[in-house]
């Protein structure tokens, strides 16, 4: 994998970043011709770089819900394996549901987060063709959720807090997933979250897609990265069902209120983890650090509650949603 400092250079731009991409291309062109002796070119590069940085900042300060959806799905956005590498140490991967198989769409295991021993579980989408296929694009099957249940129960047994990183378009829609009880697996995984006698913190790091996300996100504290999204159905899905056209995804994203900022307002989540200017993919290291600090703070606060209080707090948290 490329070093994080190279990342910036190879960044792939989103549609709405086109003016920034054009500026960056112009800067790269000038850099290629300049040898450092032409002060006019140097000052022009400097000027354009400042302009580009300014545009990036203003663009990201007012992303629309649909633009945020695209940022949340950016192929270079840090994924579970990146967080594992950047902020967790001594990871011991645990595999399999003991019933059917090992589903790499959900990764889990024992890990240490800034000195805290935890059980970490999350979706992994993969970053190139081979890994995307291996991880099934982050779309878990029943065995993935049943592995998550097994690991949560183990965490509860040994007093380890649970940290989940949510990043999925949704649970896998396939024949074999239905045959093996996708619905039951998701329902039981949600139930397992609610039964935990240890602290649980969930972070939506990219896409929080429907039941496949909530199955590992029924936590004491739910956080979202600044440009992540969380919704009951994809904007494309809502567009085709409610508007009966595939072209209204942007409207659907706005109407459904999918952003971290919207969800904090609705009290569905408890906090937002800030991303670097231009999104998590422009600085995975800084993103991961901010995430580790936020999760650590929440774990320490929850650590003061008894097991019974943790269960009660989690129950009250979800019972309150939609109650007058």
């Amino acid at each position: 994998m490329a070093d994080d400092t190279d990342w910036k250079i190879m960044i792939s731009f989103l549609d709405f970043e086109k003016p920034i991409a054009e500026l960056e291309a112009r800067i790269a062109e000038l850099r290629a011709t300049a040898d450092g002796s032409d002060l006019d070119i140097e000052s022009e590069i400097d000027k354009l770089a400042k302009k580009s940085a300014g545009m990036l900042e203003t663009t990201y300060a007012k992303l629309s819900p649909w633009q945020k959806t695209q940022v949340a799905r950016h192929p270079q956005r840090p994924h579970f394996v990146d967080y594992l590498r950047l902020i967790f140490t001594d990871f011991v991967a645990l595999a399999g549901d003991r019933t059917y198989g090992e589903d790499a769409a959900i990764i889990g295991g024992l890990a240490t987060l800034d000195g805290r021993k935890v059980m970490v579980i999350g979706h992994e989408k993969g970053h190139d063709t081979a890994t995307r296929i291996k991880h099934n694009f982050g779309m878990a099957k029943p065995e993935g959720y049943r592995k998550a249940i097994r690991l949560m129960e183990m965490a509860s047994k040994f007093g380890l807090p649970v940290v989940t990183l949510v990043d999925t378009a949704g649970a896998f829609p396939g024949v074999e997933a239905e045959e093996r009880g996708q619905s039951e697996a998701i329902a039981r995984s949600t139930e397992a979250c609610l039964a935990l006698g240890v602290p649980m913190v969930a972070v939506i790091v990219g896409e929080g897609g429907s039941g496949g996300a909530v199955a590992i996100a029924a936590a004491n504290t739910v956080l979202m990265l600044e440009h992540s999204v969380y919704s009951v159905i994809s904007p494309e899905g809502a567009s085709s069902i409610l508007w009966r056209t595939p072209d209204k995804a942007a409207d659907a994203a706005t109407a459904m209120k999918v952003t971290a900022q919207d969800l904090l307002g609705l009290k569905v989540i408890d906090g937002i983890v800030p991303e670097p200017i231009g999104g998590a993919h422009r600085d995975p290291t800084a993103t991961a650090r901010a995430l580790a600090d936020a999760v650590g703070r929440e774990l320490d606060a929850l650590g003061r509650l008894s097991g019974a209080d943790l269960i009660r707090q989690r129950e009250e948290r979800f019972l309150a949603i939609g109650s007058l």
């Binding site: 909530v214 969380y230 009951v232 159905i233 129950e315 939609g322």
Partner: peptide, 19 residues
């Protein structure tokens, strides 16, 4: 879908009840 994320949150909410 017209209730967006609030409808999704009924999944854990109802599960609290079954528990």
């Amino acid at each position: 879908m017209q209730e967006g994320i609030l409808s999704l949150m009924q999944m854990p909410k109802t599960t609290v009840a079954t528990r």
